[in-house]
Design a binder for these strands. Structure first.
Length: 937
RNA sequence: GCUCGGAUGGUGGAAUUGGUAGACACGUUGGACUUAAAAUCCAAUGACCAUUGCGGUCGUGCGGGUUCAAGUCCCGCUCCGAGUACCA
């Protein structure tokens, strides 16, 4: 009987599904272990071989932990709201729910074929109203809270209102918009309800505000910064411009410090933590106030180097600042206005691309230095960004290269405040031990001391204060799209009011078309049923909107990251319809022990989800503030595109080796038309696309060879390899092991099937250990010491490697073990039974089959993992490699129990040693126990 | 520019963290079994020199250093990848 992987895999997949083998319980005497994959977006293209890489790794860990006695939660679901389904709907008119449903079905079939041990009873779909009800619920909670800086957590907005009623907002220490006006308790009470609502929006953790957004006219939607690559949209590559719109935002900035601190406590890759730190971009420094000569205005600048305050020779403001118009003198007015206009016209893209050229205009105004009272000219320049710090810079040309270049270009003075430093060529930006000079009370101090002294002086003279600035911007939460969660808000007098929790879910309405409306409203503007009947608390026809009893509902939907920002909690109690997850379940599962996914989510999903978790933690709704203890980024599996060369302007293809310096165009051809030695099937190419039907070919040795390029797998590059074909040919167990064998999990690697036969023949060899032809050959005899040693070496290495997620070396270890056992024709149950269990996380179908044939009725999943024992052969000698001056020369055997002195004595008298010593006397003998003996001559 | 990460045979990659570099696999070559193929098994396979045999020299991107001993640690570069950027 040969290894019939097809029959085995079908049989066990059906069995697992029937028996619900991998169902996790929310209570258990066993310790818990939660392994999570980033859930996929079910795209129309289906799975390719790159997708399962992480799933296979997490599945191995999940299965391993079950063997190790853990109650394992290993769920899977779908991030099923998203743009592709919507664009497909626009093109075809098919409802996104329909295509999503179809795609999910296909994903599920493909996933099932790979034998994953997911607990499908906990499946979630972000587009399911039973799920997004709770996404909307979290939105309402965010709306109903503000961030209190006194106790550093989110607090109910009602508490803030109480403070306003008692003493206004002067004394309130909370995160709010920079332009929040000050008011007293009396003012507050005198405000209309609308005014009060408007003011509260300055504090809410999700708020509606006029903001500059990245508007993509072609897609008719707003894009987040991370959805824009090189100034064009990530999807489709359409141009993006700036536009001011009323948008929902998330006050993630309130959590900047905690998101930064939280990184220290979690085991995530350093590179990813570094990315998040950079994204949050904390800068410590000071704000300094400069009076403007002849004006009431004060300019507030942010600087990380207040210690260089006495080196200021001019100031630069962002052209967009309103203040610029106020202070500009008559003489400079025309020039300044022209410059401001020019800046507005320059797109973000131009401004980014053109970092070299220096531009700026003098406003004619002067600021007064807070300490020296000297006049400092005020300039504007577009290298200063309105959105960062205060949009104003105190320029210290001797200490900052950009200020230096600006000063050189416009012939402004460059006073030197660094003792003994030459600044004739470039600025001195180091924060070292160099003492300051010409700096009044800071003279002689170096960076650290000066920082402290100057901030003290600024604060005591009320000329400034020590501050911390973050680069992290609040996240825009509105999308002008159909296929997303509706935002549960209605409008009364242009102001947003939340639905109540009992009204959720607010279900996505039907629309006739998925495009923006004629008036430029989002697609939900097309909905016939999108009015909110406040008295009856239900959605009614849009025609009935009268702004008295029936109000318009929000037309924007939530962005893609909303649903994925809390799904890991939902898996703990996925069926709960009275809360987002039950308290008991949350307390039992706590957090994710191992989270696997790509690093491309570093500053998107992985930051937003941490933010929501911190918020939910503040409200006491989840037990931990960081939801994933350990995170691994699996590397992408890249495709190997195959390229044919066509002589430009002809339909003649030249084989790779003949191209030389002919002018050819590179054409990607479907990888499936090329065999493993890169020879193109010419007939298949002719049939593939009509344009190649009459192509001619210049061949090498009668064959056409293609070139290759490694790049991301994508349908449009014809380099997608589908796992189904591999499963058909070799089986899921082979594919699972091969993907692990390909290389370290974290590393990006190109897909090629060159080595797959080696892994497949390993599994066949494993099968043959149990069979002799058609005969079962297992005996109950006692195993040989060699077999025991081989088994236990494998147990030790595999266990250690799984713990370190080094799955590639696990596969090698299995191969070595099976090779050794088959060489000694081992057929003992005592050896092979533990080996089956050892292999089970990697090749679960084969393991189940062999386990059953070994006479067991339970699933191998329930069996304890084998434990390593030291096995000694009846050796009495230990072979040491002997080296001279570090150079290995020969090996020598010593009795096991020989002590060091005796070893040294014996090695010196060995004839081999004499040969290498050549009569010299060794200076030193180094014996590294168990490893090596080195003789220094 | 800055911040991370990397570079090991023809190829993918190992190397217990300073101790016999190249495990395991692919590929290649030769052999066995077959009428033949497939499958399977055995042997060789870093480079160079020497081959009658023993053997020798070099070798982990480059140049230095520390050490009895360096792929691994330190200093200085080169190239590649990822992220990010007029961030004050």
């Amino acid at each position: 009987m040969s290894y019939n992987f097809k029959a085995i895999e079908t049989k066990w997949q059906a069995n697992w599904s029937e028996q619900q083998t991998y169902r996790a319980e929310n209570q258990s005497s066993k310790p818990k272990y939660y392994v999570l994959d980033m859930f996929p977006y079910p795209s129309g293209a289906g799975l390719h071989v790159g997708h399962p890489l992480g799933y296979i790794a997490s599945d191995i860990v999940a299965r391993y932990k079950r063997h190790k006695g853990f109650n394992v939660l290993h769920p899977q679901g779908y991030d099923s709201f998203g743009l592709p389904a919507e664009q497909y709907a626009i093109q075809t008119g098919q409802h996104p729910a329909t295509t999503t449903q179809k795609n999910i079905k296909r994903y599920r079939e493909q996933l099932d074929r790979l034998g994953f041990s997911f607990d499908w009873s906990r499946e979630v779909r972000t587009s399911d109203p039973a799920y997004y009800k709770w996404t909307q619920w979290i939105f309402l909670l965010l709306f109903d809270h503000y961030y209190c800086l006194d106790n550093n957590k989110a607090q109910p907005i009602s508490q803030l209102v109480r403070q306003f009623e008692e003493s206004g907002n002067q004394a309130v220490n909370a995160v709010c918009d920079a332009d929040t006006p000050l008011f007293s308790a009396t003012d507050w009470k005198a405000f209309s309800v609308e005014d009060q609502q408007q003011l509260l929006l300055h504090y809410r953790l999700t708020y509606l505000a006029e903001s500059e957004v990245n508007w993509c006219p072609a897609l008719g939607t707003v894009l987040a910064n991370d959805e824009i690559v090189n100034g064009v949209s990530e999807r489709g590559g359409h141009p993006v411009t700036k536009k001011s719109m009323k948008q929902w935002s998330m006050r993630i900035g309130a959590y900047a410090e905690r998101l930064l601190q939280g990184l220290d406590g979690i085991d995530w890759p350093d590179s990813l933590k570094e990315m998040q730190r950079n994204w949050i971009g904390k800068s410590v420094g000071a704000n300094v106030y400069f009076d403007v000569e002849g004006h009431d205005a004060t300019i507030e600048v942010f600087t990380t180097r207040p210690d260089t305050l006495f080196g200021v020779s001019f100031m630069t403001l962002a052209p967009e600042l309103a203040l610029v118009q106020e202070i500009t003198t008559k003489a400079q007015k025309a020039e300044v206005t022209a410059y401001v206009e020019k800046t507005k016209q320059r797109s973000e893209r131009d401004r980014q691309a053109d970092v070299k050229s220096i531009t700026g205009v003098f406003t004619g105004a002067f600021a007064i230095h807070p300490f020296t009272q000297e006049k400092v000219p005020i300039w504007i320049g577009d290298y200063v960004l309105a959105g960062y710090g205060t949009g104003a810079v105190m320029a210290v040309p001797c200490g900052d290269q950009r200020d230096y270049d600006f000063a050189k270009y416009f012939n402004l003075p460059i006073p030197n405040i660094f003792e003994g430093v030459d600044i004739s060529q470039e600025a001195y930006a180091e924060k070292g031990q160099t003492p300051l000079c010409d700096s009044d009370f800071l003279n002689g101090m170096a960076y650290q001391e000066a920082m402290q002294k100057v901030i003290e002086a600024l604060e005591s003279s009320k000329k400034g204060k020590g501050t911390v600035t973050y680069r992290l911007r609040d996240a825009i939460f509105s999308r002008q799209r159909y296929w997303g969660e509706p935002i549960p808000v209605y409008y009364k007098n242009m102001l947003p009011f939340p639905l109540s929790i009992e009204d959720l879910p607010l279900e996505l309405p039907e629309v006739e078309k998925y495009l923006p409306t004629a008036e430029g409203n989002p697609p939900l503007g097309n909905a016939k049923q999108w009015g909110w009947d406040l008295a009856h608390r239900k959605v009614v026809s849009s025609d009935r909107i009268d702004h008295q009893n029936v109000f318009p509902l929000e037309l924007n939907t939530m962005p893609g990251w909303a649903g994925s920002s809390w799904y890991f909690n939902r898996y703990m109690d996925a069926k709960n319809d009275t809360s987002f997850a039950g308290e008991e379940a949350l307390n039992y599962w706590q957090d994710v022990d191992l989270y696997l996914g790509g690093s491309e989510h570093a500053t998107g999903h992985l930051l937003y989800s941490r933010f929501w978790q911190h918020f939910l933690f503040d409200l006491g709704l989840v037990p931990v503030s960081e939801y994933a203890k350990k995170l691994i980024n699996q590397g992408m599996i890249l495709g190997e595109s195959t390229i044919a060369y066509r002589k430009t302007g002809t339909n003649t293809f030249v084989s790779k080796g003949l191209v030389n310096d002919q002018t050819v165009e590179s054409i990607r051809v479907d990888v499936n038309l090329v065999n493993s030695s890169y020879e193109l099937d010419i007939e298949a190419l002719r049939q593939w696309q009509p344009q190649f039907a009459d192509a001619t070919f210049e061949l090498e040795d009668g064959k056409y060879f293609v070139g290759t390029e490694v790049e991301k797998m994508s349908k449009s590059k014809y380099n997608v390899v589908n796992p189904d074909a591999i499963c058909d040919q070799y089986g899921a167990d082979t594919l699972r092991m091969y993907e692990m064998f390909l290389g370290p999990l974290e590393q990006a690697k190109p897909w090629n099937t060159a080595g797959i036969s080696g892994v497949h023949s390993f599994l066949k060899k494993m099968w043959r250990l149990f069979h002799e032809g058609d005969q079962w050959r297992i005996t109950e005899d006692d195993p040989s010491p060699e077999a025991l040693k081989s088994l236990h070496a494998a147990i030790k290495k595999v266990t250690a490697d799984i713990e370190q997620y080094a799955f590639n070396t696990c596969v090698s270890t299995f191969m070595i073990c099976v090779n050794e056992l088959s060489a000694i024709k081992c057929n003992n149950r005592a050896i092979l039974e533990p080996l089956v269990v050892l292999l089970a996380p990697f090749a679960p179908h084969l393991a189940e089959e062999l386990w059953e044939k070994l006479g067991h009725t339970n699933s191998v999943t329930q069996v304890a993992y084998p434990i390593h024992e030291e096995v000694y052969l009846t050796e009495t000698v230990k072979s040491y490699p002997i080296s001279f001056n570090g150079k290995m020369r020969f090996t020598h055997d010593f009795p096991l129990d020989m002590d060091r002195a005796a070893i040294e004595k014996e090695i010196l008298s060995a004839p081999q040693t004499q040969k290498y010593l050549e009569g010299k006397i060794p200076k030193k003998i180094i014996v590294v126990p168990g490893k090596i003996i080195n003789i220094v001559v």
